[in-house]
């Protein structure tokens, strides 16, 4: 069931997910389109998430935005519910009560283990988005494992002292008993500055011709978990199951790439280790069980289902 409407207020609105925003020019959504989007959300009972560019909006836009309950996704140093960092350095100066998002390539990520470890005790929640996850190699996997092990050490100490920072890559799976995917096109859709609707911002960024009619989405069932042959058997519950990445890498929205699955299972297994480490010292999340498995890509064991 549709629950959220993401509204990109400008072509240069900040990207908070896997896909880069190639648009650099400022181009605000039309006021009429903005009003129409809000009206649509009100009628469909959708919570709106506005996504901002890095400049101050005209007052008339702010007035329209203020007509409805919403969440704000903003670039640093703006204030919002979700704040997207420009880089690692800006993370340290972020507001404490916001969700912080760090978009980062794998090479920089692997080189930044200590910096991230130092930041973790200071944040409430950090979402790390690896922007080139589709290029993961076996060697990357080893480095990723090392990074997650290092971050596990920090998180374990924090949790045992009663401070429970959230890191999407590790603590989400530790808390989940069922899938928590992005569900673009099923639970949320996006209104772009051109006044057209998309599954998510990435579909607009990568091809503006990929728009949809939100009332009649062809093959919408393929976006649902029950129509994803691999994912419906998978317990990497924290995985975003990004349908844009799926389509980019396998040409099908319901099929993830090998690299996505391996990265998600590496995180899953690290979360399992974190959970066990914490439980060695304290009672913690007794309802969660993460089983030991002998694969990183569910595709490799598909014949066992």
């Amino acid at each position: 069931m549709m629950q959220y409407l993401v509204i990109l207020l400008d072509d240069s609105s900040v990207s908070y997910c896997h896909c880069d925003n190639p648009h650099k020019e400022h181009h605000l959504i039309g006021l009429d389109d903005l009003r129409a989007g809000i009206l649509y959300a009100m009628k469909q009972n959708l919570m709106i998430q506005f996504v901002y560019p890095d400049y101050e909006l005209p007052q008339e836009y702010l007035d329209v935005i203020d007509t409805i309950d919403h969440h704000d996704i903003v670039p640093h140093p703006m204030k919002g519910d979700v704040v997207v960092a420009k880089d690692l350095e800006t993370l340290t100066s972020m507001q404490a009560d916001a969700v912080a998002v760090l978009r980062i390539g794998k090479a920089e990520l692997f080189a930044s283990g200590e910096a991230i470890a130092a930041i973790l005790p200071k944040v409430q929640r950090l979402n790390i988005v690896i922007t080139d996850i589709d290029t993961f190699t076996d060697d990357d996997l080893k480095q990723y494992n090392s990074l997650l092990s290092r971050l596990n050490e920090v998180l374990k100490e924090e949790y045992l002292t009663g401070h429970t920072p959230q890191l999407n890559l590790l603590t989400d799976r530790m808390m989940l008993t069922k899938p928590n995917h992005c569900n673009a096109g099923v639970e949320n859709i996006t209104l772009a500055p051109n006044g057209r609707y998309y599954f998510c911002p990435a579909f607009y960024y990568s091809n503006p011709d990929d728009s949809i009619d939100p009332q009649a989405i062809p093959n919408q069932q393929l976006l649902r978990l029950d129509h994803a042959p691999l994912c419906r058997h998978c317990d990497a519950y924290h995985c975003r199951r990004c349908v844009w990445l799926n389509r980019k890498t396998t040409l099908e929205v319901n099929t993830p790439s090998h690299e996505q699955c391996v990265a998600a299972h590496t995180e899953r297994n690290a979360a399992r280790q974190l959970l066990e480490a914490i439980r060695q010292k304290a009672t913690f999340m007794p309802e969660v069980e993460i089983k030991e498995i002998n694969y990183l890509d569910p595709f490799d064991v598909r014949k066992e289902w």
Binding site: P229, T250, T255
Partner: peptide
């Protein structure tokens, strides 16, 4: 191989 994955996971129901 990523482009083969949808073919090799296709089933009748889906």
């Amino acid at each position: 191989e990523n482009l083969l994955r949808p073919f090799l996971t296709l089933d009748r129901i889906t």
